[in-house]
Amino acid sequence: MNIDLTGRRALVSGSSQGIGLAIATELARSKAAVVVNGRNPDKTERAADSIRRQVQDAQVTAIAADLASAAGADDVRAKVGELDILVNNLGIYGAKPVFEIDDDEWRRYFEVNVLSAVRLIRHYLPGMMERGFGRVMSIAGESAVATPLHMVHNGVTKTALLAVTRGFAKAAAGTGVTVNSVLAGPTRGPGSEELDNPNSLIQRLIEPVEIGNMVVYLSSTQASATTGGAIRVDGGYIDSILP
């Protein structure tokens, strides 16, 4: 399947490293014009340069802003015009005993993992609906359907992200716009070699590019009948038939 995203404009939040950078790279490789985002200006520009080195004639813009805040979202909206593809990749995680997660930390996780996506979808989805084409994806993970005891706050917010995405998919019904979640499994990154991965059916860590490949497909016209779903790229890690 040859996917050509020429003429499409994409924003990937939290894309200065890791899965987000891989997603942005693969979108650029498929000829979309990509906006890379991160909080640190230097790191965000280095990410854009990385894409330019890997992808000939890549159309890449770096915008540094904290999308976990309303002010950061306003800043990005002021600098980025209409979008065809929105990828909500921004997220935080960390292990902590559930009884030690205080109110402030709960709020911080909700702001970063849920509200950052809500603000962007709320702004960009109506324009996509008016034009009759758009692709919105939110990157979740296995914790969204299998709450981990050591990261309850992460699991709860990722579960909420699935519901948010499904709700906006309903709002876009019949418009030609698709809205989906992507359930990423344990993925290679700094320190990932230490991950315990007993349930993986592929018996290895997922490569970030494999998440990027799924996002490219969901961004395409070939995925026009896939919406409102939680699409798994988990290597069979989630031990259920359905999410």
Rank of each mutant, 00 (worst) to 15 (best):
D103V: 12
I241P: 12
E210G: 07
S181D: 04
N37D: 08
V233H: 00
N2W: 11
I51E: 01
V136D: 02
E45N: 13
G185P: 10
A169L: 06
V182Q: 02
A160W: 00
P148D: 08
A22Q: 09
R29V: 13
A146C: 09
R107W: 07
A95T: 13
T221S: 11
T6F: 05
A28L: 05
A140E: 10
D74Q: 09
L86N: 01
A169P: 05
P97C: 09
E82D: 15
V76S: 02
A172N: 00
D49T: 10
G228L: 05
D196K: 10
I85F: 05
I23G: 04
S220W: 04
F99R: 10
R108L: 14
N180W: 02
V182R: 00
S116F: 03
G14A: 02
V179G: 02
G167M: 08
R29F: 10
E45I: 11
H153A: 12
S69H: 11
A48W: 07
L27P: 05
A24F: 01
H153L: 04
M214K: 12
F168L: 12
F110Q: 13
A10T: 11
L242H: 12
G94C: 01
G174K: 07
S181C: 15
Q17V: 08
A172H: 05
S219I: 06
V35L: 10
R53A: 09
D102N: 08
A73H: 12
D42Y: 08
Y124D: 00
R9F: 13
V215C: 11
S50H: 14
H150K: 08
V34Q: 01
G14D: 00
L86T: 00
L242A: 15
G189H: 03
A230E: 04
S224Q: 07
M151C: 14
A65E: 02
V55P: 06
Q54C: 05
Y217P: 02
D103L: 15
G141E: 07
T6I: 11
R131C: 12
A146P: 06
V216S: 00
S240L: 11
M129W: 04
G212P: 03
R53V: 07
V12I: 02
A33E: 15
G81W: 06
P198M: 10
A184S: 14
T175Y: 01
F99G: 12
A171I: 08
E142A: 11
T165Q: 04
P243S: 13
P148C: 11
T165W: 07
V98D: 14
D239C: 14
K79N: 14
L242Q: 15
